[in-house]
């Protein structure tokens, strides 16, 4: 067993420096690497380019990094659930690149899988395709989208072990598995770090080979963005 376990979040984020490109798993506030984000806020690292489907809310998720002006650029598919984001974007402090959600996932997966680029039909004929190579296959047009190049990927899983194996829960899975191994260093935080051998190899979603550092998060708030319920009859 190759041991990926680090002592905690401080050791896990070691090496993150100004102007780096970092991926963050999560969809909305579900499955975000809460502990890594909190540690990066404390570290005060600046000029980050963040690849993440969303940008958090004002006081949680990547909104915390935005609030401290630590993010230079966001690469996302859907943003603007927070006022500070909007203010920074409109004032020009923050650069924003909006890309289709499936393209975002596939550019992560391409980086993970060793493809330099992929053709997708998404965005053809729209401003998303401007300046990009296009090509026709079987009568349909596609846009060439390049694999991401990132320094760190911060992901969050439900369970993991010191070998770096990961299991996700529910829709908190989202972009997390696609970002594992898609950056130079993948940092996984888990709700529960279990002894090696306890996870059934049949049930593992991401094999440890894609993870360089793993630790158990101290606590998880797991905030709900839109609480929708129905009444009992």
């Amino acid at each position: 067993m190759i041991n990926k376990q680090v002592s905690g979040v401080q050791e896990a984020i070691a090496g993150v420096a100004n102007d780096m490109t970092c991926m963050f798993g999560g969809f909305g506030l579900s499955g975000i690497p809460e502990n890594a984000i909190a540690a990066l806020v404390k570290l005060g690292v600046k000029g980050l380019t963040c690849i993440s489907n969303n940008a958090g809310v004002d006081d949680f998720g990547l909104g915390l990094l935005l609030h401290q002006h630590q993010i230079k650029k966001m690469v996302s598919s859907y943003v603007g659930e927070n006022d500070e984001f909007e203010r920074q974007m409109l004032s020009g402090e923050l650069d924003v690149e909006l890309i289709p959600q499936g393209t975002l996932a596939e550019r992560c997966r391409a980086a993970q899988a060793g493809f330099p680029a992929v053709y997708t039909p998404a965005g053809f004929g729209t401003e998303v395709a401007e300046g990009k190579e296009t090509r026709e296959f079987d009568g349909k047009m596609y846009v060439l989208e390049h694999a991401f190049k990132a320094d760190f990927a911060f992901v969050k899983a439900w369970k993991g072990d010191a070998a770096g194996n990961l299991i996700f829960k529910g829709t908190a899975r989202n972009f997390n598995p696609n970002m594992c191994g898609a950056a130079k260093i993948t940092v996984a935080e888990v709700e529960e770090l279990v002894p090696v051998g306890e996870l059934d190899p049949n049930q593992i979603h991401i094999p440890g080979i894609f993870v360089q550092r793993i630790f158990q998060g101290e606590k998880y708030e797991k905030r709900i963005e839109q609480r929708t319920v129905r009444k009992r009859d």
Partner: peptide
């Protein structure tokens, strides 16, 4: 049902 919301189970509108 009220009280059974799970932050890990949402839809694309971020609703539980």
């Amino acid at each position: 049902f009220e009280g059974e919301e799970d932050a890990d189970i949402i839809n694309a509108g971020k609703q539980t």
